[in-house]
Design a protein around this nucleic acid. Structure first.
Lengths: 399, 399
DNA sequence: CTTTATTAATAAATTCTTTTAATATATTTA
DNA sequence: TAAATATATTAAAAGAATTTATTAATAAAG
């Protein structure tokens, strides 16, 4: 979008968003504490919290024990007053889940799409909408403020129209937001899946928000990255940033459908790992990732070696990311970390530490995700919550 | 830096910076015109311009012809009221130049460092300071508001302390800003050279500032990139973003001093091009880039072919940049574009167009710089001007 | 030549922020 | 109990953009 003059709305939006992040992470704390964390003045915190309390999304919860002086009044997100829905649409399944306002998962449903190959995008969206309605009814028609949806990419995100441009057929230029909005009548927010994962990880960090650049690398069937700069998702010109799966690490490498050759996906995705295992074994019936994962877990030499190689290749991609973006934190997640996170951590660290300047390696925080749950699904919901706290109009009508 | 709450200062700083960018680009225009360009209200423009005019950095310049209605009052940057100094420190020379407040070059001096290999950083800074003093005296002691300095990288920029960490010896952890400030007594602003180049190019664009992401690729003896996001330089965690020269495009490629292998610099820098030419010719006395450039200009087949290969390799690096950052604009500049910009444009475009998704290629603006002058030197000065417009305290003391 | 519509710039009042400073409140400690 | 300390709130202030109204200048229409 055009870079235009800015006004006061942006101040408050930023400060509200920041206060929410801290308040949720702290669980229960005092206003003064929030003021210290955000470097806002106490009065500012009081003002914003007064709004939040009016809107019933924050509440006071008794007193906190202090050492000296007046006791603090504990405040916390009023997590059970409203709900949000998180949706993750993947290539072979989708999930719909209910969350409280702190981003805590309440209930989750997963629907397989393996046998639905003849369905087009709007059919699937219909299924998603039905699941949403069901989950709402099953939970006593609780008040839902928003729906956050995570989608696989790459996609063009301009003008709120999301068109998947590779992978699944029939998703080109589909206006997912509009279709879901029509069917559910609740505000819908879309996000690229890796971005959602990155956002969830940022929330989960112990001392988050102090970092300028966080990258979440989703290494699964494909490889994508979510890039967060100063607490905000970085999307690039068309919303396709973070397509690191199609970054080349080998100029003489294998051709890829994207036109490039030597794409990282060809060397570090689970799809390719499984392919290589099958090539080596040459069995009658090809094995799948689940099987390969088991073999790696059991220490099968061939599989472990191929896995290690994939990890090292991923490391080579991460070296490039570091040189270009100089992030504070890189978190590796998704399918490829699951067979053996320890090996992944070791191989990637080994590769990266050798491939970048010592001064950079000393400062960077590179780790395999230890996220408990589905960060992409959670991230979709969390982004919706963030929108809610910033756009009171969304739910003011509902009160 | 920590992500903290924000306040009104940021609003005005942003709006001032934006108005400056547009006003300088328009040359002379009306307040209404600026209001339209920035989407600020007329009254806001009037207010900010009133300040600028008070501080004598903007002036009214008669009337403009309109079609109907009241004539506009022309306003323009009061370019000759003050001056700024731009400095570019390169590995084998440095330049010091005087600029007016629109960023127009007035006079420039270049000092070679080829025979100064025994000098350390502070000696060189001493030389720079002397040149600055001389240029000021030679120009009737005009009022200098600030000094902008562009330096080669990579460097750690935290805490204003710039330490060059590769290349030239003796530059580790040198506080260039402080040293220059002590010697000149004028505010000093530092920037990585590729970032300065990017900034100058942004200023030079005809319809600039509407783009979210601009990347300037400085392909010279080394290869660096300046990344601009929403009109601001993106520096990353430590200030080393844009080190694309050490992005690997060949996982089996040649070892590099940085620890990585297959670094882009080994395939697309002028240093390597010259090396390859020398390897092929195996002459008694090795040729330098100037000679190679001449041969390319004259269409020597060997040199042209090697040059084309370098361009294609650069294209492969740019493909990676696009996949990761999804920029609106990429501008290629510096030494490597000079032998034959047309070939560079063709080879890079050819390579990139084949290596990214059609949907992305359609939207991206990829071009060889046609910048007239030294964008890195200019950029250093321009950034200083930007600081001046945002920090009136800098020069208010001088009035 | 006068009127009208149009455009530009400014001024005053308004609104919406955060911040400052003062005040009230509550708790510990001496 | 008094003093010190810490938290929270309130009212006023400060600073920003915006809205509304006003003044001014010009071209076009009649």
């Amino acid at each position: 979008m055009a870079k235009k003059g800015i006004n006061q709305d942006i101040i408050q939006k930023t400060n509200r968003s920041l206060l929410l992040k801290y308040l949720r992470r702290e669980g229960t704390c005092s206003r003064v504490h929030l003021a210290n964390l955000t470097e806002l003045k106490q009065a500012t915190v009081t003002n914003i919290m007064k709004d939040f309390i009016d809107w019933e999304i924050v509440k006071e919860v008794g007193f906190l024990n202090g050492n000296k002086g007046r006791r603090s009044i504990g405040i916390a997100v009023n997590k059970d007053m409203f709900r949000v829905i998180g949706v993750r649409i993947a290539r072979k399944y989708f999930k719909v889940a209910l969350y409280d306002l702190t981003g805590e998962l309440i209930t989750e449903k997963r629907i397989e799409l393996e046998n639905e190959t003849n369905r087009n995008a709007s059919d699937i969206i219909e299924m998603v909408a039905d699941s949403i309605k069901t989950i709402i009814i099953d939970n006593n028609n609780e008040k839902i403020l928003a729906i956050g949806v995570a989608l696989p990419g790459p996609f063009i995100a301009k003008k709120n129209r999301i068109g998947l441009i590779t992978g699944t057929e029939g998703w080109n230029n589909v206006d997912v937001r509009q279709l879901l909005l029509e069917r559910c009548g609740i505000p819908v927010f879309l996000e690229h899946d890796a971005n959602a994962g990155a956002y969830a990880h940022m929330w989960g960090l112990k001392d988050a928000y102090k970092d300028e650049v966080l990258i979440y690398v989703a290494a699964g069937q494909g490889i994508g990255a979510g890039i967060i700069i100063e607490g905000e998702i970085f999307r690039g010109a068309l919303g396709t940033s973070g397509e690191i799966g199609h970054m080349s690490i080998d100029r003489f490498g294998e051709k890829c459908a994207c036109g490039n050759q030597g794409c990282l996906e060809k060397y570090a995705s689970s799809t390719e790992l499984v392919k290589k295992v099958n090539e080596e074994l040459n069995l009658e019936v090809a094995v799948n990732f689940k099987q390969v994962k088991e073999w790696i877990e059991n220490g099968d030499e061939l599989c472990v070696n191929l896995y290690k190689e994939s990890c090292r290749n991923l490391g080579r991609g991460i070296i490039n990311l570091i040189n270009i973006l100089n992030p504070d934190i890189i978190i590796i997640g998704d399918e490829m970390t699951r067979p053996n996170p320890k090996i992944m951590q070791e191989e990637v660290s080994e590769t990266v530490s050798k491939g970048i300047l010592k001064e950079l390696w000393k400062e960077i925080d590179l780790k395999v995700s230890q996220y408990n749950g589905d960060s992409i699904l959670d991230g979709a919901a969390i982004m919706a919550i963030n929108e809610v706290f910033n756009n009171p109009s969304i739910f003011l009508e509902k009160i």
